[in-house]
Computed example of a mutant assay.
Amino acid sequence: MAGGDAEVLDVAGHEVRITSPGKVFFPERGETKLDLARYYLAVAEPLMAAMGGRPVLLQRFPNGATGSSFFQKRVSPTKADPWLTTTRVSTPNGTVSDALVAVDLAHVLWAVNMGCLGFHVWPNTAADPGHADELRIDLDPSPGVTFPMIREAAAETKALLDSLGIASHPKTTGSRGIHVYVRLEPRWDGYQVRAAAVAAARELERRRPELVTAAWWKEERGSRVFIDFNQNAPHKTVFGAWSVRANPHAQVSAPFGWDELATIEPRELTLATVPTRVREQGDPWAAMAPQSLEPLLALSERDLAAGLMDAPWPPVYPKMPNEPPRVAPSRARKDTP
């Protein structure tokens, strides 16, 4: 329903206003704010299966994908939208805020109207903040890394997890990388999930040291695929499945099947093409089910027993037990008398 300079969508029992629906959000393609809203309507079922009930961090682009942006951590319902659901979340330094919860598609479209193109999603549900129920293995392309190398690293990741009896599910990042997800039983906190991610990264580096690195310091990575284990640090959000990136191509962080790994092309997975994929192929993550983290935690315990220290944490986190010095190796050498 249109009214003035707004389109009113009846979604999940709520009327959501899309103001300035004709505002162009992707100038190179001509797609508008309303096109973005219709995209999320088209992928509603798999989108909500992936992030329904989770807190989300909003990155708002008031003037579209090519404009400036800012992160919005706090959301407050108003008289216009009293139905909005929020939950209390905290950052590593203890700052708390009320984050939007992706309860249903009405909440998603409310955020789209605020200029949110895609969603940075928490690894826990709002109903159970103490347990991270997703392991997210981020295959990060360092300079010089090609997408065929990312594909190869993803295959190695699958092989490792398969050998441990863990089913995994890939998605493109909406840029140049791949994320591999494992849905977990809600039994472990973010510290334990990160420990499992560190163990996976180190094991992958042992298996393919010429291709994969677990080195936190960029100067040590070379032209290898970095397994960014710190994407699993507590309170860390990751760009969500089915979310649209703020790039000229309107690329989607799109789940896909492992049988597509050799042929998947991130540039082809866009706001315009992904709804057709979903309509024709369904949800590639439909079989995702909760699993045990114990096999990876056993690898972590093995590494610690062998004398390995914890991997470095990002600088915004407090110093952790068994963590090595937070100084780049080249800097440490210069500081040594």
Rank of each mutant, 00 (worst) to 15 (best):
S330A: 13
P248S: 06
E45Q: 13
T173S: 15
S20P: 00
D228P: 11
A12G: 04
S20L: 02
L36V: 10
G67P: 01
V198P: 01
E203W: 04
R187V: 11
Q192M: 11
L84C: 04
V244A: 15
A311T: 06
G190D: 05
A200S: 01
L57I: 13
P295L: 01
A289K: 15
V252A: 10
P284K: 09
K218F: 00
G130S: 07
H120L: 02
V56D: 09
A199I: 00
R267Q: 03
Y181M: 11
G53L: 04
V182C: 07
A246E: 03
E156I: 00
T263S: 06
N322C: 04
A241V: 08
G130I: 01
T237M: 06
N124R: 15
I150E: 12
I150G: 13
N232D: 09
A102H: 13
L269E: 10
R54A: 03
H249N: 12
G307P: 11
G165F: 07
G52V: 05
W242K: 07
H249V: 00
G165R: 12
M48W: 10
D98A: 09
A106Y: 04
W313V: 03
R208L: 04
T173E: 10
R202V: 00
T19H: 13
V89W: 07
T173G: 09
A6T: 06
G13A: 01
L211P: 12
P312F: 03
L41V: 02
F26N: 06
A215E: 15
D35V: 06
P170R: 13
A215G: 04
V89H: 03
V75M: 12
R279D: 05
W217L: 00
Q281D: 07
S300R: 14
A254V: 00
E268S: 11
E323D: 12
A233C: 14
A126S: 14
M51Q: 10
Q251V: 01
R17T: 02
L184D: 14
P27Y: 05
D283K: 06
A195N: 13
N247P: 11
D104P: 09
T270F: 01
D335M: 15
A195F: 00
S69C: 08
A262D: 14
A153D: 11
V252D: 07
A298K: 15
